[in-house]
Structures are given as structure tokens and as C-alpha cells.
Amino acid sequence: MAIALIAVMLMELLLLIFWAPFFFRTGIVLFNQRIAASPAKLARLSLSGLEQDLPTERWMSQAFHALPDGSVAFRESFAPYFAGRYFPLMRGQLVVDKRRREVRVIGRCSWFALAMTVMLLPIILIHPVAWPMLAFLLVFYMGYRIQLRGYAEVVEVVRARVRCELPRRFIDPRR
């Protein structure tokens, strides 16, 4: 069972590194935020360069990559980060839906976290002394809450771009 979990973790890591389009488009949705926009604003909307608009002082920085279908995938950057780490539980996708007149920010569940959670119950039922492994669920929940804040920041940056506003840190305070 441990070998299967390691294999899932390595496979997911490779799919994240190589920005596999099917990987970012499929999975269990944990975060789904819709931002309404008029057709004119959607036509002017640019999702490039979002990394520069996001604050990076508190959490790991986000990396963005355009997918062939026109959506934008995002995940935590693999760049070295020394202020603290957490287990990333989601990978994201930005989808511009002109028919519904909205931009969707979607966060999908990590395969490793899902497999670990599903395997945890049978392990504890078979080996009751393994109950301390339930701490993994707490770690996953804390990582989810931290990552949820990061996804909310992505939503705010996209919402500001839809409204054609600059982020506050780009506005000159001397004016």
C-alpha cells in the first residue's frame, strides 16, 4: 500500500511539473468561484502575468501556465521557499466562459491526498494502533485552509482585472 501511495505521489508530481492539460481539467472540485463579466470585459481580459499581481510575502508563490484549450492552469511554484511549507492539496484552473459570461477559478483535489484519505480508514480498522495516522487528516485540513486563502487571492486579482483595476500595490501613493 505504501508503494502505491508513493507511486501516486510521484505520478502527480510529474503531471504538475509538465503541466499536463488533462490533469488540470479533471478531478474532484474543492474550490469553485465564478466571476461575472460582460462580454466586452471578457474580450479585453488578459490572464497573462497574474504572478506579478499576487502578494508573495505570506504564502508560496503561484505559477501559471496557459493550456491549449485557452484556460490557464496554476499551482504552487516549485521554487525554493524558506518561510514555511505546507502540503499542496489543490491544483487550479482559470476558465473564461464567454457563453455564460463568467470567469471560473477552479481548485481540484490532489490525487495523493485523496488516496491517502481513502486508504487511512481501512488501515485504522485493520490496525487500531495506527490511530495516530489520523493526524494526516488534520495536516491536510490545515493545508487546505492555507491554500484556500491563496485561491481567494487569485479570485481577487482576476476580479480586479475584470473590473479593469490595478492592484493597490501598483497605485502611486503620492497621488
Score class of each variant (00 low, 15 high):
residue 162 V to K: 05
residue 71 S to D: 12
residue 18 F to A: 15
residue 54 L to M: 13
residue 143 G to S: 15
residue 46 S to P: 01
residue 72 V to L: 01
residue 13 L to G: 14
residue 23 F to R: 11
residue 67 L to M: 15
residue 155 V to H: 05
residue 19 W to S: 13
residue 154 V to G: 06
residue 5 L to N: 11
residue 35 I to G: 05
residue 132 P to Y: 04
residue 52 Q to W: 05
residue 113 A to L: 05
residue 63 A to Y: 01
residue 15 L to R: 15
residue 105 V to G: 07
residue 118 V to Q: 04
residue 109 C to W: 14
residue 64 F to G: 07
residue 134 L to H: 02
residue 40 A to D: 11
residue 43 A to T: 12
residue 64 F to C: 06
residue 57 E to Q: 14
residue 36 A to H: 08
residue 152 A to T: 09
residue 165 E to V: 04
residue 42 L to V: 05
residue 156 E to L: 08
residue 18 F to I: 10
residue 29 V to L: 06
residue 2 A to F: 10
residue 49 G to M: 03
residue 125 L to H: 05
residue 8 V to S: 06
residue 113 A to Y: 04
residue 127 H to A: 15
residue 155 V to T: 11
residue 60 M to R: 15
residue 24 F to I: 13
residue 100 R to C: 09
residue 134 L to V: 10
residue 125 L to Q: 11
residue 15 L to C: 13
residue 60 M to E: 08
residue 16 L to I: 10
residue 100 R to N: 14
residue 154 V to L: 05
residue 138 L to S: 10
residue 82 F to R: 03
residue 69 D to F: 07
residue 74 F to H: 04
residue 94 L to K: 03
residue 83 A to Q: 09
residue 11 M to Q: 14
residue 4 A to L: 14
residue 156 E to G: 05
residue 95 V to H: 07
residue 41 K to Y: 04
residue 108 R to H: 07
residue 12 E to W: 09
residue 20 A to S: 14
residue 49 G to N: 05
residue 81 Y to R: 09
residue 133 M to D: 04
residue 117 T to A: 11
residue 71 S to Y: 06
residue 72 V to Y: 01
residue 135 A to I: 15
residue 144 Y to I: 01
residue 32 N to L: 14
residue 170 F to G: 00
residue 71 S to E: 08
residue 145 R to F: 00
residue 69 D to C: 06
residue 149 R to H: 03
residue 74 F to E: 03
residue 98 K to V: 10
residue 42 L to T: 06
residue 111 W to C: 09
residue 168 R to S: 14
residue 61 S to P: 12
residue 89 L to R: 00
residue 109 C to H: 10
residue 160 A to T: 08
residue 164 C to P: 01
residue 34 R to T: 12
residue 16 L to T: 11
residue 80 P to L: 08
residue 120 L to C: 07
residue 24 F to H: 15
residue 137 L to C: 06
residue 51 E to S: 12
residue 43 A to L: 06
residue 140 F to K: 00
residue 64 F to H: 06
residue 167 P to A: 07
residue 59 W to L: 15
residue 146 I to K: 00
residue 167 P to E: 08
residue 52 Q to K: 14
residue 169 R to H: 15
residue 43 A to K: 12
residue 157 V to R: 11
residue 75 R to D: 10
residue 128 P to I: 06
residue 82 F to D: 02
residue 111 W to R: 07
residue 29 V to G: 02
residue 81 Y to P: 01
residue 3 I to Q: 14
residue 146 I to Q: 00
residue 162 V to T: 08
residue 99 R to G: 09
residue 50 L to A: 06
residue 33 Q to Y: 09
residue 156 E to F: 02
residue 77 S to M: 00
residue 10 L to P: 04
residue 58 R to E: 10
residue 73 A to G: 12
residue 20 A to R: 15
residue 71 S to C: 06
residue 60 M to S: 08
residue 123 I to S: 13
residue 164 C to V: 10
residue 34 R to P: 01
residue 155 V to E: 10
residue 169 R to Y: 11
